[in-house]
Design a protein around this nucleic acid. Structure first.
Lengths: 149, 149
DNA sequence: AATAAAATGTTATGTTATAACATAACCTAT
DNA sequence: ATAGGTTATGTTATAACATAACATTTTATT
């Protein structure tokens, strides 16, 4: 089974478990992100669905679908780029922690990496010391990929 | 001397050293950021200059001015919020490293903090291992401030 | 089949940002 | 002092990202 099918199957299963539905359009949007090697904007996903599936999904719907996929932890929003990526661990069985992203500023390719628990703890401590409350320790780091560098 | 005057004086000196000019409009935009306790968007700065100085600066110019102030290291862009803050260290004499920001997602108040050198080194190593190249180790962390929490 | 809930469509508009070209302000060398 | 280049700002248009509000369609359940 290829990667895409495996991911979609896992995603479907996961939605079912949560009593949510992975509809055709949601599958199409998720496919776009899984197949892409880089982060895509909502409007790029509109184009992808049109091209790949002849499905004309309005931008508004894509945003809603992205919200849904995020809520199911199938997709991450990269705030520094205003783009979206599929979670790199959809078809892993183990649960996974907070993702960290290296984002190529030129071409939007993304690598989802892990930093050590101790570093995360230190960041949390820094936040606590500053009298702030952490929403998510997701880090997004501006980089250049090997290609673009 | 109050904080604002001190900052502007330092900023002026710093620009002079670099052969750059801190014009009136640039001062006004910088003032807006220094006086604000939170990050502001370019359009909020347009409003600020109108209100505070009766200076109608077009959005286009504010963006250019922000670019300039960034290039002089007087201002930081917070990419996850699409807003801008004055550098917290303009009137410090010592040079300072890469800034890290805690950003309140509700009200955009910002705290500029430092993380340990060892953490920064670990992040750099993570990036290198992933065959990426770091543009800047600036971290921006989504939080809630004490007020909003 | 009737109903309620969920998903999607539609239209309008808000927000952030840049492109392209015009004009004004300011140095600096003659 | 002024001609000519450089820097700064103005103007207009438009691109790119995002949400609000309300309508319709689809799906699941009784």
């Amino acid at each position: 089974m290829n990667k895409l099918d495996a991911v979609i199957k896992h995603a479907e299963q996961q939605c079912k478990t949560n009593g949510a539905r992975l509809t055709d359009k949601r599958k199409q949007v998720l496919s776009g992100l899984v197949q892409s090697n880089k982060a895509l904007s909502a409007y790029e996903l509109v184009d992808y669905c049109e091209t790949a599936f002849s499905a004309r999904i309005p931008a508004m719907s894509v945003y809603r679908i992205l919200d849904f996929l995020e809520s199911e932890h199938l997709v991450h929003k990269l705030n520094i780029a205003n783009k979206y990526v599929a979670c790199a661990h959809i078809s892993c069985d183990h649960a996974h922690g907070t993702p960290q992203f290296l984002i190529c500023k030129k071409c939007s390719t993304v690598k989802e990496v892990s930093i050590s628990q101790s570093t995360i703890l230190e960041l949390k401590q820094t936040v606590t010391d500053a009298d702030y409350q952490l929403i998510s320790p997701q880090l997004e780091i501006n980089c250049l990929c090997a290609q673009c560098a």
